[in-house]
Structures are given as C-alpha cells and as structure tokens.
Computed example of a mutant assay.
Amino acid sequence: MNSQPNNPLHGVKLEEILIYLEENLGWKTLGEKIKIRCFTTDPSVKSSLSFLRKTPWAREKVEELYLKTKLKEAKN
C-alpha cells in the first residue's frame, strides 16, 4: 500500500468529509461558505456526493473547508 504522508486527506472519504462538515457547520453555513446549490436547495449528503464527484472545483473547495475546520478544531 502506498503511503502519502504529505496528503492530509489520504484515507478520508468524501462522504466522511461531508458528514463532518454538516454536523459541525450545518447546511446553511456550508451554503454560505461554498455557494453551490447542493448545499442551499434541499441539501442532502447523497445529492451533494453526486455533485461533488462530478465537479472537481467544488470538491476542492469542500476539502479546503474541511481542512480549515479540522485545523481550527485542533487549535481549540
């Protein structure tokens, strides 16, 4: 198995990221921070996963927000 010590997202599934963000920030805040419809109009993990898997730029924004949120949580 290849090790990726410099990749903080290695081994973290997109679904885990979405669930974490939804539980810690909520859909409303997600929609405010990342302006995409899957977070603002009838949001769900399933619909968001579908969109993010097909849209690299949106997935990058979600991953960045996840890392920032985890870092902020670690500091507290």
Rank of each mutant, 00 (worst) to 15 (best):
E32Y: 02
N76D: 00
V12M: 06
Y20E: 09
L71S: 08
R53L: 11
S50T: 07
P5F: 07
N24I: 07
I19Y: 10
T41I: 14
A74G: 03
Q4T: 03
W57Q: 04
E64T: 12
L49Q: 09
Q4H: 07
K46P: 01
E73K: 02
L49W: 11
L65T: 06
I17Q: 15
E23L: 15
I17V: 15
P5M: 02
E73Q: 04
L71V: 04
S47W: 08
P5D: 10
L67G: 02
E15P: 03
S47Y: 07
E73I: 02
Y66S: 09
S44M: 13
L52D: 12
I36G: 10
G31T: 05
C38I: 15
K46C: 05
Y20F: 15
P56T: 15
C38Q: 11
F39T: 12
K75H: 03
D42T: 12
I19F: 13
N76Y: 00
N2Y: 01
N2Q: 04
L52N: 10
L25C: 05
T41S: 10
D42E: 12
L25E: 06
T69Q: 14
V12G: 12
E64P: 00
N6E: 08
E63K: 03
L67D: 03
K68L: 00
F51Q: 13
E22L: 05
L14Y: 03
T69V: 15
K28E: 06
E63N: 02
I34A: 00
V62P: 12
N76S: 03
S3F: 10
Q4G: 04
I36N: 09
T29C: 00
L9P: 00
G26E: 10
L18I: 13
T69I: 10
E22K: 12
E15Q: 15
I36V: 15
S50F: 06
K28I: 11
R53Y: 11
V12L: 08
K35W: 09
L21T: 04
W57N: 06
S48V: 12
L52K: 12
R37T: 13
E32V: 02
L21R: 02
K75F: 00
G26T: 07
E23N: 14
S50Y: 15
